[in-house]
């Protein structure tokens, strides 16, 4: 049992530090780089889930927090994207990206009381992380800066709409539905961590 746990730990540590090859996967919409970037966010579940979870969490924490996250997340994502594209480490860091949305899901499910600066810092870290991965995967595929702008714009839009909706929700069932959504995201992340560990073995 102990040996198994140790093996699992080693497997998780290995996938945390071992970057996986990033296969370029920018979808081509035919409308140009900007729209390709928007589509990229829509078809990249790990990115989409972290944005949804963070937007829900920011909304749960109130208007001031939501306003901070609406700008902090896309800006950090953009900065991370530039870093990833410039110093392309060709990596997808699946464990860290999974951890980021799983943790955000847990925070939503528990409706955790976190100070606004804490939420903003979390948004910046998650944005940088996912942005770096985006930049590193999109740049070798020949994606332009417009694609990154498309990704960031979509994140801004999604975060603004979702967090605004959540802040305006009446008490009762709608708030519970948000927490349930958080628990689903967290559960998906937990299962994904298991898959990653299994794949690494």
């Amino acid at each position: 049992m102990r040996r198994m746990r140790l093996r699992a730990l080693i497997a998780l540590a290995t996938i945390a530090v071992a970057p996986m090859p990033a296969h370029a996967h920018l979808v081509e919409t035919g409308f140009g780089g900007f729209y390709d970037g928007i589509a990229h966010l829509a078809i990249t579940p790990a990115d989409l889930l972290v944005v949804i979870a963070l937007a829900l969490f920011a909304g749960q924490r109130g208007t001031r927090t939501a306003r901070m996250v609406v700008f902090a997340l896309p800006l950090a994502w953009w900065l991370g994207g530039l870093i990833g594209a410039r110093w392309s480490v060709v990596t997808t860091l699946p464990l860290l990206t999974t951890l980021s949305f799983a943790l955000a899901g847990v925070l939503v499910a528990l409706n955790m009381r976190v100070r606004e600066i804490g939420v903003a810092i979390f948004a910046v870290i998650a944005g940088l992380l996912h942005g770096v991965v985006n930049g590193a995967t999109l740049a070798p595929g020949g994606a332009s800066g417009l694609a990154l702008a498309g990704v960031v714009s979509a994140i801004f839009f999604l975060t603004a709409v979702l967090s605004a909706e959540v802040t305006a929700l009446p008490a009762g069932w709608p708030g519970i539905a948000v927490r349930v959504a958080g628990s689903w995201i967290a559960a998906t992340g937990l299962l994904m961590l298991g898959w990653l560990a299994k794949m690494a073995r």
Binding site: M4, A8, V180, S183, W184, A186, G194
Partner: peptide
């Protein structure tokens, strides 16, 4: 809310081979 998270935890245990 509790069920999916604990269910996923169970799934994680299975995937880790516990």
């Amino acid at each position: 809310v509790a069920f999916p998270m604990m269910m996923a935890f169970g799934g994680l245990m299975g995937l880790l081979g516990i």
